[in-house]
């Protein structure tokens, strides 16, 4: 690969209880590109994303080995403050989980806990991130309403704006368009392609068309293993693995 590597995962094995969920994962994720993670439901995509910002720590049954290196630091075994590592990444979970606050504070929360409390500055940044997530026009007149008053698709965009607000360098997006109509999905895709100027993006999707549209780099997973990875045009035009080929040709069973 000619672009610099942002995330380097080596020999990652992850067990939940007795189940071997991630098997010998070796992948590299290039900086300031969109890497799309594809694979059947249940193959471990979400688990891989959660390993990258150490959310797997919250599960007492998880055992993990190997390494995940971000900016020359093995974040799996670091003794450094874990909150610093998490702030490097904005996570968009598969289902939106807005915070129990109003819309404004959902975005200001991340800013405040990082010590940015200046009111005028907050206002500006809240507006900026809401615009980036294409939510500003719908939300600008109801910033003081509960986040729960938003529709699921709007909540998803709110969570995106909230994730951007902590100034991450990496965006981990787990099916960010699963609750959106095609037009809003396209807007989000468009936004991701704009964001890759300044962020490294890992995007999980089920939609092959979406992957074709946005991916620079593709990782295929199957039953907890990475079966193929490489630049998008190579993998899509000339898949080496038989399962990948089936998936791309649309007769995946």
């Amino acid at each position: 690969m000619d672009t610099p590597v942002k995330i380097d995962i080596k020999d990652l094995n992850l067990f939940i209880g007795k189940n071997h969920i991630l098997k010998d994962i070796n992948v590299t994720i290039p900086e300031k590109k969109i890497t799309v993670l594809l694979g059947q439901s249940g193959c471990g995509k979400t688990t891989l994303l959660k390993s990258m910002n150490r959310l797997i720590d919250l599960n007492n049954q998880v055992r993990v080995s190997g390494s995940i290196t971000i900016d020359n630091e093995d974040i799996l075994h670091t003794r450094k403050d874990i909150t610093k590592i998490r702030k490097k990444m904005g996570l968009l979970s598969q289902r939106p989980y807005p915070l129990p606050m109003n819309i404004y504070n959902n975005i200001a929360f991340g800013l405040r806990i990082s010590g940015r409390k200046n009111r005028i500055n907050l206002d500006k940044r809240v507006e900026r991130y809401l615009r980036q997530a294409h939510l500003w026009d719908e939300a600008k007149d109801r910033l003081r309403d509960s986040a729960s008053s938003l529709s699921i698709g709007q909540q998803q965009r709110l969570c995106l704006a909230r994730g951007l607000a902590v100034d991450p360098v990496i965006i981990l997006a787990d099916e960010p368009t699963s609750a959106l109509d095609p037009i809003s999905s396209m807007a989000i895709e468009q936004m991701f392609t704009e964001l890759k100027q300044s962020y490294t993006i890992v995007l999980v999707t089920h939609i092959l068309q979406q992957a074709l549209r946005v991916a620079d780099y593709v990782i295929f997973m199957y039953l907890g293993e990475v079966i193929e990875q490489g630049p998008a045009h190579e993998v899509f035009t000339n898949p080496k693995n038989v399962v990948t080929r089936q998936f791309i040709q649309g007769n995946f069973s």
């Binding site: 959660k50 910002n53 959310l55 919250l58 909150t83 610093k84 998490r86 702030k87 990444m89 904005g90 996570l91 979970s93 289902r95 989980y97 915070l99 129990p100 606050m101 929360f109 991340g110 806990i113 990082s114 969570c159 909230r162 994730g163 902590v166």
Partner: peptide, 23 residues
Amino acid sequence: GLLEATYSLGSTRSETAYRVFFR
């Protein structure tokens, strides 16, 4: 998921407890 969302924003345990769980 709410716990994970809060942590992924970089909050500490106490911030998670008193600013999110409490609310």
